[in-house]
Amino acid sequence: MHETLTGWGWIGLLCIAAGFFLSSGIGARRNRQAVPLNAVLYTVAVSLCTLSYILIDKLNLQHYTPLSLLEVSNIGFLLGLIPFVRLREIRRCLKDKQRLRELAIGSVLSPGSYLLFLLAMNASKLAYIAPLREIGTVFGAFAGIYWLKERKEAARIVSACVIFAGILLLGIGGR
């Protein structure tokens, strides 16, 4: 993509990677048991998939507008998920007002956030925008602790802070 980073940008990327490493529990023993190999492989697979679709989105934005790319993605998701749709579940959701409200909110927020990401990626370098996609990990960690009352593990808080520091280093000093 013909993009370059400064030394601070590379340090930011390393901080983000280190934060994910810390949050996964790899290298730490919990209850004297090592992290299962499957967990490590899934973590690597998710990282590679995320990297792939962000890169593909950036390449597609050279040929399509963000809105048209969102439309094509939604059609692809629809076609890919149709075989797994259960009509009984749809009927049950349509009868339950609370679930229907949640579906409506999700139907706006999910594509809305993706559209905002595509607009930002269209206006900036991939190296600056792609790590922002991971800010959800930071928000998710704190939301889980404070709103969902999950356990306050020091490693989760530290890893979220390291990821956030990496995003700041990349955004501020990475140019």
Rank of each mutant, 00 (worst) to 15 (best):
M1Y: 11
T4E: 09
T4W: 00
L5A: 05
G12H: 02
L13E: 03
L13P: 00
I16M: 07
I16Q: 00
I16H: 00
A17T: 11
G19W: 00
S23D: 03
I26M: 07
G27C: 10
A28W: 13
R29Q: 13
R32Q: 12
Q33S: 08
A34M: 10
V35N: 03
V35E: 11
N38K: 09
V40H: 01
Y42A: 10
V44H: 01
A45V: 09
C49Y: 10
S52H: 03
S52T: 15
L55I: 13
L59C: 05
H63R: 06
L70Y: 04
V72M: 10
S73D: 14
I75P: 05
G80P: 08
L81P: 08
I82Y: 14
P83G: 06
V85G: 10
L87G: 10
R88F: 07
R88G: 11
I90Y: 07
I90Q: 13
C93N: 14
L94R: 12
R101S: 15
R101K: 12
L103D: 13
I105H: 09
G106Y: 06
L109V: 15
S110L: 15
S110K: 09
P111E: 03
A120Y: 02
M121C: 07
K125S: 15
K125N: 13
A127Y: 14
A127P: 04
Y128C: 00
I129Q: 01
A130M: 01
P131A: 04
L132Q: 03
R133Y: 11
R133V: 06
I135T: 14
G136H: 03
A141L: 01
A141M: 01
F142M: 06
G144I: 04
Y146K: 04
W147A: 15
L148E: 05
L148C: 04
E150T: 08
A155R: 09
A160N: 01
C161I: 15
C161D: 02
V162N: 02
F164R: 00
I167S: 02
L169H: 01
